[in-house]
Design a binder for these strands. Sequence first.
DNA 1: CGCCTGCTTGAAGCGGTTCAATCGGGGTGG
DNA 2: CCACCCCGATTGAACCGCTTCAAGCAGGCG
Lengths: 245, 245
Amino acid sequence: MPRYLIRKIEQFTALPPDERRNLEAVARRRVIDLADGAELVGEGDRPPGVRLFLEGWACRYKSLADGRRQILGLLLPGDLFDLNLFLLDEMDHAVVALTPLVLAEIPRDALEELLAQSPALAEALSRDLLAQIAIQREWTLNVGRRTALERVAHLLCEIFLRLEAIGLTDGRRCALPLNQAELADATGLSVVHVNRILQQLRSAGLLHLNGRQMELPDLAGLRRLALFNPAYLHRARPAADYLRD
Amino acid sequence: MPRYLIRKIEQFTALPPDERRNLEAVARRRVIDLADGAELVGEGDRPPGVRLFLEGWACRYKSLADGRRQILGLLLPGDLFDLNLFLLDEMDHAVVALTPLVLAEIPRDALEELLAQSPALAEALSRDLLAQIAIQREWTLNVGRRTALERVAHLLCEIFLRLEAIGLTDGRRCALPLNQAELADATGLSVVHVNRILQQLRSAGLLHLNGRQMELPDLAGLRRLALFNPAYLHRARPAADYLRD
DNA sequence: CGCCTGCTTGAAGCGGTTCAATCGGGGTGG
DNA sequence: CCACCCCGATTGAACCGCTTCAAGCAGGCG
């Protein structure tokens, strides 16, 4: 059931029942499970078919020859990877599972048929692709111009809000399946420094960690610290107080 | 005349003559000139209609409250800004002209009609959008994990190769209308440091600058220095020797 | 028990920033 | 025509944020 994608889409407008059924049918056709750490696709591979994340987290990343690695973005439940990607010759980046995954594989012809029959869905998916690009731009700004403290805080804000949009938060708590090495690769920092930044956030009362869960007791404060502007997520208008200025 | 866009597209496959005519007609409909420094769209604005770059350079950027600025990418002749952008609520970044510009404005309905009548063009533009996203990812890697020297070298390689793909290079020379402050904002560095890096590149015989032109006498060497892998540009297979490993 | 993975700590070093001048060339107004 | 100005490029010196290196530590698991 592509319930997270539907939830994300229906922030804006309800999907017509027939389009919803079309999507559900396609997403049920070929469901696959992957283990934590599985590589969905490697740099240089032929692009895979479109995949819809039903459960679990993954990340896109690129590596340099000497081992430096940059995580480019997170793929969360409800995300599509990637509309039209099959048009490209080869993958310029890799994708790896951060947790066990449940994916729906959507072959190219099934996707084209689905989109032809579902104009509202097609528009929603185009919008979602643009929102993914906007996130990529924000990550460029994040690693390019924010300080270490701001970067980590910004990443945590983004994770919380993206999970909230699909109903995967519990009050101020949500999952955080990334270890410190992965946080470092996502923020362009060293593991050691990420460790010290997390301590700073904890001692400032902005973050509690236990296991693979995090709690953000003062999201408004964290947001201010991170210079976080949620506009780039292109969600529906914020209702929550911690998103107002 | 959208000749640079057509050139970029026809790296892969020739456009059917009727589709080419459709595109040329739409691109002739509303042509506008803008001065150097003009803001095409600001952060928070409603997204503009689709615009095709006929001549000139622009950049996308985001700023932080205290004035830090990150240039997110370059818009060059033949680039489209941005397929489907009107689907979003508001701009999450700004775009400003780096040189005088000539643009074709394509209203939403004209674009939809064009794409409906021109399947090959529609596919090419989707592919171009994906290539733009790939460039954005590479920029995230660039500012996240490369050293200052690598970053600047990488940016120069990208500029040269993108211009080459549209026939705007002259041997090893091409335009470079960015000043050092803009290079700094594109690489996430300080102006002072960019200045010193450029001196390093010059004294290593990898770069000559005069005015708003640059020459890259040893592109293969610059590429190696930058850890530059051209795959992310998703051009047709390289013919040039400096692109082979 | 012993090992592995991930987290934590300390200390030294360096890459890049910041601050503060200076320089140079092109354009402008007197 | 020249003095002035302004913007961009350049230089030097001090500083600091983050990295690197090198250990230790804690918890989970075979």
